[in-house]
């Protein structure tokens, strides 16, 4: 666990560290500051006020922005459905391969990392006819997009869960539990899932982040989600769109911060 303190690896001096982080941080803050400044502008006469923020935060944006509310709902639903796909389809396959079909490990890894090599814009060319079939069979509900999103998050979810599986020595744990008389159900629920919670949580949060930010597939398959709605709203009222962008970025930041922190807290406890 030496990497935690990192005392061994010669790092930068305190001053150098803060100089690097400060300079790069400041540059990266500029676009965010610019967005905030933009939302506070008071139109042609100049000056600043917070009236638009009040409008958005009190939910008093008028019916023409209802599309945005619907879209946010759609994106959250999709995030949830994608997590379900990861938990129900990917995780059992990974556990099975780790325990019983180790020879398939390389194949599974290859399949899961494949979506990194296939750009979403390429996938969408082939998804269009597939979704044509789905629309006829199951309707054109927005939730069906989750099937495509499950593929998009595969590499991230796989990495998160696999690094956890590698770290806990799943075979020994399972054999120990089995030799003590535990049923397979007990092994999965009381041994594997608790030990994999950090990986599963990480997989879930990265899925949420990817789904909430997804634009390519939704836009080209003509489904409405947060990102496609933002592009539409931005054409009418860029100020409202930028406020929503800032709020979404803040929400995603808080989400990643909290879940990262939970992951660390649980790791510490295990140790």
């Amino acid at each position: 666990m030496s990497a935690i303190t990192g005392t061994g690896i010669p790092g930068p001096r305190r001053g150098t560290r803060w100089l690097i982080l400060g300079a790069i941080g400041a540059i990266f803050a500029v676009p965010i500051v610019a967005m905030v400044e933009f939302t506070l502008r008071r139109g042609l006469e100049g000056g600043y006020d917070v009236s638009r923020w009040v409008t958005v935060l009190t939910g008093d944006v008028g019916p023409e922005y209802r599309v945005l509310g619907v879209a946010i709902g759609n994106s959250l639903l999709l995030a949830l459905a994608t997590i379900v796909i990861v938990l129900v389809l990917l995780v059992p396959a990974m556990i099975t391969v780790a325990l019983k079909l180790p020879r398939l490990r390389r194949v599974l890894e290859f399949i899961c990392l494949l979506p990194i090599s296939i750009p979403a814009i390429v996938l969408v060319v082939g998804l269009a006819p597939v979704y044509g079939v789905i629309s006829r069979a199951a309707g054109s509900g927005v939730w069906t997009l989750a099937f495509a999103y499950g593929i998009l998050v595969l590499p991230f979810a796989y990495r998160a869960v696999q690094s956890n599986i590698d770290a806990i020595d799943i075979t020994t744990l399972t054999e120990a539990a089995r030799s003590l008389g535990a049923s397979w159900l007990t092994v999965i629920v009381r041994v594997l899932l608790p030990n994999l919670r950090v990986g599963l949580l990480a997989a879930a949060f990265i899925s949420v982040a990817v789904v909430l930010g997804e634009f390519t597939i939704a836009s080209l398959l003509n489904r409405q989600n947060l990102q496609t709605a933002l592009v539409i709203v931005q054409k009418d009222d860029p100020f409202i769109a930028v406020i929503i962008v800032l709020l979404s970025l803040l929400f995603a930041f808080a989400l990643l911060l909290v879940i990262g922190w939970i992951g660390r807290a649980s790791t510490r406890r295990t140790r």
């Binding site: 990266f28 500029v30 676009p31 965010i32 610019a34 967005m35 400044e37 933009f38 991230f156 990265i206 982040a209 990817v210 909430l212 930010g213 997804e214 634009f215 390519t216 990102q227 933002l230 592009v231 931005q234 860029p238 769109a241 930028v242 962008v245 979404s248 970025l249 995603a252 930041f253 990643l256 911060l257 990262g260």
Partner: peptide, 21 residues
């Protein structure tokens, strides 16, 4: 967390950010 947001969540929103900048 900030890296995760900007790397995974960006897309459309970064376009807006740079229009504002």
């Amino acid at each position: 967390a900030a890296s995760g947001v900007l790397a995974q969540f960006g897309g459309v929103m970064l376009a807006f950010a740079f229009v504002a900048t």
